[in-house]
Design a protein around this nucleic acid. Sequence first.
DNA 1: ATCCAGGTACCCA
DNA 2: TGGGTACATGGA
Length: 298
Amino acid sequence: MRKIILQPEKTPFHLERTLECGQVFTWTRTGETWKGMIDGEVVTLRQSGSVISFNGITRKKLIHYLNLDQDLPGVLGAIRLSISNSHAGIPDPVFEAAATFASGLRIIRQDPWECLICFICSQNSNIPAITKRIHALCKKYGEPGQDGQYTFPTPAALSRESPESLRLCSTGYRAEYLSATARVILTDPMFLPRIRALPYSDAKKEIMQLPGVGPKVADCVLLFGFGFYEAVPVDVWIRSIITSRYPEVDLCKGKKQSCSYDDIADWCRLYFGLYAGYAQQVLFASRTCLPEICLMEK
DNA sequence: ATCCAGGTACCCA
DNA sequence: TGGGTACATGGA
């Protein structure tokens, strides 16, 4: 195994939190070892303290995939500064508790196509079920590689399958979305590459044209697949955390009752700043461990 | 057994 | 524009 030695102060990183925080579903864990594929190659990863052991990929590609070249302390500093600016200099105990709990979590750089398919599969499911579903799709429609790993199914592979066939991977009603979205991407191979060059709101509008992609899936793909840090995916957990832990905020801007997706996402961008997407993921990763957050009000 | 989950499309006022 | 509902499936 090759090694990367991290400097914890400068390059905080936690492999388990990074791969198991709900941003990616393609990795398989065995004890302290994770196996998966990056860029078509079978990769093995392990972490012991400040040492990452790896093989199957170049150091450079791994650093890029794990986003180890991002200045994470700088990102956290920017979030804290934004909080401080919109909060009269008062530190935020909710965010600080989450940041401690999720320390070393990084938003990785996923392949946009894989990310898109995974988050179409994610809707209205829990993380264990999503993971199982994705692995079933890879096994059935991907190419077998070494070590029992399968490549992620290509747009062509998913396009030639009927929705009925896709349903066998317990994708349920999402099978139609997968099939239709795969056809769009196959027909227009520049659809996803074009997204990268757009400003966030245009990129979101574009990607929401795809069947099965609403605001939440769009934001996940933009954040995890394209690195748009303004993207704030709002699911039931984030909604609950924001509305229950920041009750003083007038999220709904005087509207009737429950605030909209954009009310919550816009407030997060205002409050957490340019890296609101990262703040969101830190809160999501801490959803069951910040006491009282899990008491979902109904 | 019941409820819920990294939601979306569609319909209707 | 905004609110209600069907949708398939499996985990807790």
